[in-house]
Every structure is written in C-alpha cells, then in structure tokens.
C-alpha cells in the first residue's frame, strides 16, 4: 500500500483539493460517477487507485495488472457553462496537460499525442485518456476525466507499451508526480474557455504522425495518407490522393 504524505494538492485552485485513494477498484471513472451520484458538488475531486481491475479505454489490459506502479486516476470537473459541442476542446486540454507534464522528464519532440486521446513516446504508448461527460441542456454538467500513465513499471507484455521509468532509468515518487500532473491539468483546463488560447494549434503541433505520410486502414483497405488536422468536432482530416477526407474515430486505424 502506498504511503501518502499529503491529503490534498497545495498549488491548485480546485483540482485535488479532495483526494480519494483506493487500494483497488474496477474503474476510477465508475467510482467517480458513484461519488457524483452521492454528492452533486465535487468539482476537482480526484480519485486514484493502485490497481484498476477493469480499466477501460485501453486495449491489452495485461500490464494494468501490475499494481502500485502507475498512475491511474480520475478527476471530476464541473464546468460553469461549457457547451457540449466544446467537448473536444476539453479532450485537447487534457492531452496537452499530460504532454506538458511528460516533457519535464522526456525529450520534447518525442512525446506525441496520438489522435484522439493516447499519449506516445516515439512509437510506444505511455498512457491514455478517457473522458465521460454528462450533458444537460446542451451543456457539460460534469465531466469525469480518466487518466492512465505508465510510470514505474519495468516490463510490459505489450511491446508497444512503455513507461517513464524505462525511458529515463529513474524510479519516481508517484505522489509528487500526481501533484505536478494535477497542476498541469488545471492550467490547461482553465484555457478551454479562453478563445485566444492556442489549444488546437498546440494539439496539432504535438500530434503523432502530423503532416507525415503513413498507412491507415480505412474500411478493408490500407491507404497512404497524410494527417492535415482535425475539424471542429475532432474528426481527423487526412489528405489522400490530393483530396481531403474526414474520419471519425471508428472509421480509421493507424497502421505504419
């Protein structure tokens, strides 16, 4: 069991002012939803577990089993008045927060955001994001932001997975990392509503395979194309044979 020194974050306005620590749980997102059903006001509450038994949004859960080594947590965000159609801005903000955090330890131009919400170091996955919103009258009433990041785990069954430790040969104090990440998260979340914020530009700037030619599976075909950007709703824009085509998440698979 982890030993934690702090009960809440010091340098944030709302994130992590209340932290719930669980030795084990099925999914921190599900637990957060449960917390919200008991108390409707939980803005910034953070739920973290050492071992998530049914983590979602990730394929090949095998490495998830190594408990106590990684960061798996959820943050409840209750925006004041954020339109449902802005939900992709929230996703971009969260991905950028993780990026901001990781480049404190890793080579800047090797950390990438794989569309739409995975975090990569070169061609290997370091973590991912799973956001679940509740929409009421066209607005996001609350958002559960689930984050999983591989930190101290030394080996992975999946050759495409990697951790901060294996990349830097350093063991990390998870409590300190979590607080730092919480600060990055808050900073980016506060940018969602700023129309002059450069969330989209920065998201693209750090996007995996951005403006590179690669192979994608579309339907039953493997097609060569180049990522040009994303549209307002988050669809991926690809240039294929001099034409621009837009894809939603299920319509396209990254190949090589």
């Amino acid at each position: 069991m982890w030993v934690w020194k702090k009960t809440m974050f010091s340098n944030t306005l709302f994130i992590g002012k209340k932290i719930l620590r669980l030795a084990s749980c099925a999914s921190t997102n599900d637990f957060a939803a449960e917390v919200l059903s008991q108390n409707p006001h939980e803005n910034g509450t953070l739920i973290i577990t050492e071992s998530q038994t049914q983590g979602r949004g990730q394929r090949g859960n095998i490495w998830e089993a190594e408990s106590g080594k990684n960061l798996t947590f959820s943050v409840i965000f209750q925006p004041d008045s954020l339109l449902a159609s802005d939900h992709f801005r929230l996703n971009m903000a969260v991905c950028l927060a993780i990026y901001d955090f990781l480049i404190l330890f890793l080579e800047k131009n090797k950390v990438k955001i794989k569309w739409s919400n995975d975090i990569y170091f070169e061609d290997r996955k370091l973590g991912g994001v799973l956001i679940e919103n509740t929409i009421s009258e066209q607005k996001i009433r609350h958002s559960i932001i689930g984050i999983g990041l591989n930190i101290n785990q030394l080996s992975f069954e999946n050759p495409k997975a990697v951790s901060l430790t294996t990349l830097t040969n350093t063991a990390y104090n998870l409590e300190n990392l979590l607080e730092k990440l919480g600060e990055n998260l808050e900073k980016r979340i506060l940018q969602i509503r700023q129309q002059n914020a450069t969330l989209r530009a920065e998201y693209l700037q750090n996007l995996y395979w951005y403006q590179e030619t690669h192979f994608f599976r579309i339907g039953n075909q493997e097609i060569s194309g180049q990522i040009l950007g994303i549209d307002q709703t988050g669809n991926l824009a690809l240039q294929i044979n001099q034409k621009i085509r837009y894809f939603s998440f299920k319509e396209i698979v990254f190949i090589k």
Binding site: G57, A84, H87, F88, L90, N91, S116, N117, L130, I131, E132, N133, T134, I135, S136, E137, R141, T233, G234, N235, S248, F249
Partner: peptide, 19 residues
C-alpha cells in the same frame, strides 16, 4: 435529468440527460 442515451464522439462518452 434522467440519462436517456450516450453520444460517443472520438472516444469521448457523453451521457445525455432529458430536458
């Protein structure tokens, strides 16, 4: 306020409440 469906977009899941 009852959740009536989920709209999923780009791996983001949105529970929709009845107005």
């Amino acid at each position: 306020g009852k959740v009536v469906c989920i709209i999923e977009a780009m791996k983001l899941f949105n529970e929709i409440e009845s107005e």
